[in-house]
Amino acid sequence: HMTFVALYDYVASGETDLSFKKGERLQIVNNTEGDWALAHSLTTGRTGYIPSNYVAPSD
């Protein structure tokens, strides 16, 4: 899985969403939902949907 870094803070709007903080590292599990991606946080160990425009690929 590619690793991504959060560009902004995001507060989950539902139970299936994943909250994260700017700078948090995430792995995209499934990116077939258009503007949303299923992601796993390497920081918190949690998995949920995130807005895909809130993250960018990290080196």
Results as ranks from 00 to 15, higher is better:
Ser13Val: 15
Asp59Lys: 10
Leu18Trp: 03
Thr44Trp: 00
Asp17Ile: 08
Asn53Ala: 13
Val55Gly: 05
Lys22Thr: 06
Pro51Met: 03
Thr47Leu: 06
Thr43Ser: 10
Ser13Pro: 09
Ala12Gly: 12
Tyr54Ser: 10
Gly48Arg: 01
Thr44Ile: 01
Ala37Ser: 11
Leu42Gln: 06
Arg46Thr: 05
Leu42Ala: 05
Leu7Tyr: 04
Val5Ala: 03
Leu38Asn: 02
Tyr49Gly: 01
Gly34Thr: 07
Thr43Ala: 10
Thr16Val: 08
Thr3His: 11
Gly34Gln: 07
Leu42Thr: 06
Ile50Trp: 00
Leu7Phe: 04
Thr32Asp: 10
Ala12Pro: 05
Tyr49Val: 06
Thr43Cys: 12
Asn30Asp: 13
Gly34Ala: 07
Glu15Cys: 13
Thr47Arg: 08
Asp59Asn: 11
Val11Leu: 08
Pro51Arg: 04
Gly14Met: 09
Thr44Val: 01
Asn53Phe: 10
Leu42Asn: 04
Gly45Gln: 05
Leu38Lys: 04
Trp36Leu: 06
Phe20Gln: 00
Phe20Asp: 00
Tyr10Cys: 03
Tyr54Ala: 14
Ile28Asn: 00
Ser19Gln: 05
His1Phe: 13
Gln27His: 13
Pro51Gly: 01
Leu18Asp: 01
Ser19His: 05
Gly14Ile: 07
Ser52Phe: 15
Ala39Phe: 04
Pro57Cys: 10
Tyr10Gly: 01
Gly48His: 02
Ser19Val: 06
Leu38Val: 05
Pro51Asn: 05
Ile50Cys: 01
Val55Met: 07
Arg46His: 08
Lys22Phe: 04
Thr3Glu: 14
Asn31Ala: 12
Tyr54Leu: 14
Asn30Leu: 13
Val29Thr: 07
His40Gly: 02
Thr43Gly: 05
Pro57Leu: 13
Gly34Arg: 07
Asp17Phe: 14
Ala6Cys: 09
Thr3Gly: 07
Ala37Pro: 08
Met2Asp: 11
Tyr49Ala: 03
Pro57Trp: 12
Met2Val: 12
Tyr49Cys: 13
Ala37Gln: 11
Ala39Met: 04
Asp9Trp: 02
Tyr54Phe: 12
Tyr54His: 08
Asp59Gln: 11
Leu38Ser: 02
Asn31Phe: 15
Ser52Tyr: 15
Ser52Leu: 15
Leu7Lys: 06
Asp9Pro: 03
Thr44Pro: 01
Phe4Ile: 06
Thr3Ala: 07
Gly14Glu: 08
Thr43Asn: 08
His40Asn: 06
Ala39Gly: 04
Glu15Pro: 14
Gly14Phe: 09
Val55Phe: 11
Ile50Arg: 00
Phe4Asn: 03
Ile28Thr: 02
Asp35Trp: 08
Thr47His: 07
His1Asn: 13
Val29Asn: 06
Gly23Ala: 02
Ala6Gly: 05
Asn53Tyr: 11
Leu42Val: 07
His40Pro: 00
Glu24Trp: 01
Ser19Ile: 06
Leu7Trp: 06
Gly23Gln: 01
Ala12Val: 04
Leu38Phe: 11
Thr47Asp: 06
Glu33Pro: 10
Thr47Glu: 07
Asp9Lys: 01
Tyr49Asp: 02
Phe20Ala: 03
Thr44Ser: 09
Met2Leu: 12
Leu18Lys: 03
Arg25Leu: 15
Val5Glu: 07
Asp35Gly: 14
Gly14Lys: 14
Val11Trp: 10
Trp36Gly: 03
Gly14Val: 09
Asp17Ala: 08
His40Asp: 01
Arg25His: 11
Ser52Trp: 15
Ala37Glu: 04
Tyr49Met: 10
Glu24His: 04
Arg46Asp: 06
Asn30Tyr: 14
His40Glu: 08
Thr47Ser: 11
Thr43Pro: 02
Leu38Glu: 04
Gly14Arg: 14
Lys21Pro: 01
Val55Thr: 05
Asp17Glu: 15
Val29Pro: 06
Ser52Gln: 09
Ala12Phe: 03
Val55His: 04
Val11Arg: 06
Leu26Ala: 00
Asp59Phe: 13
Asp17Tyr: 13
Val11Met: 09
Asp17Gly: 14
Thr3Asp: 09
Tyr8Trp: 12
Ser58Asp: 14
Ala39Val: 13
Lys21Ser: 10
Ala12Cys: 05
Lys21Gln: 10
Thr43Tyr: 05
Asn31Lys: 13
Gly14Pro: 03
Asn30Pro: 07
Trp36Ser: 04
Val5Met: 06
Leu18Glu: 03
Ser58Cys: 15
Met2Arg: 12
Thr32Asn: 10
Glu24Pro: 00
Gly23Asn: 05
Val5Thr: 09
Asn30Met: 14
Leu7Pro: 05
Tyr54Met: 13
Tyr8Ala: 09
Ile28His: 01
Tyr54Glu: 02
Asn31Ile: 14
Ala56Thr: 14
Thr44Tyr: 01
Thr43Ile: 09
Thr44Gln: 06
His40Ile: 15
Glu33Met: 13
Ser19Glu: 05
Gly14Thr: 11
Ser19Trp: 04
Ala6Lys: 00
Ala56Ser: 10
Asp35Ser: 09
Thr43Arg: 08
Ser19Asp: 06
Ala39Tyr: 05
Arg25Trp: 13
Lys21Glu: 07
Ile50Lys: 00
Leu7Gly: 04
Asp9Leu: 05
Leu18Arg: 02
Trp36Glu: 03
Thr47Cys: 14
Val11Gly: 05
Ala6Met: 07
Tyr8Thr: 07
Thr47Ala: 06
Gly34Asn: 07
Val29Ser: 07
Thr32Phe: 14
Ala12Met: 04
Ser13Tyr: 10
Gly34Phe: 06
Gly23Pro: 00
Phe4Ser: 05
Glu15Val: 10
Ser58Glu: 15
Tyr54Asn: 04
Phe4His: 08
Leu38Ala: 02
Leu26Gln: 00
Ser13Ala: 12
Asp17His: 13
Arg46Pro: 00
Arg46Tyr: 07
Ser19Met: 07
Glu15His: 09
Ala56Cys: 12
Gly45Asn: 07
Asp9Gly: 03
Val11Glu: 13
Val11Asp: 10
Gly48Ser: 03
Tyr8Pro: 00
Asn53Ile: 10
Asn53Trp: 14
Val29Leu: 15
Val29Ala: 08
Gly48Val: 01
Val29Arg: 08
Lys22Asn: 02
Trp36His: 05
Thr47Asn: 06
Ala56Asp: 06
Ala6Trp: 01
Gly48Pro: 00
Leu18Ser: 03
Ser19Leu: 08
Ile28Glu: 00
Val29Gly: 05
Ser52Gly: 07
Tyr8Phe: 12
Tyr49Ser: 03
Arg46Glu: 08
Pro57Ser: 09
Pro51Ala: 02
Asn30Ile: 11
Thr3Asn: 08
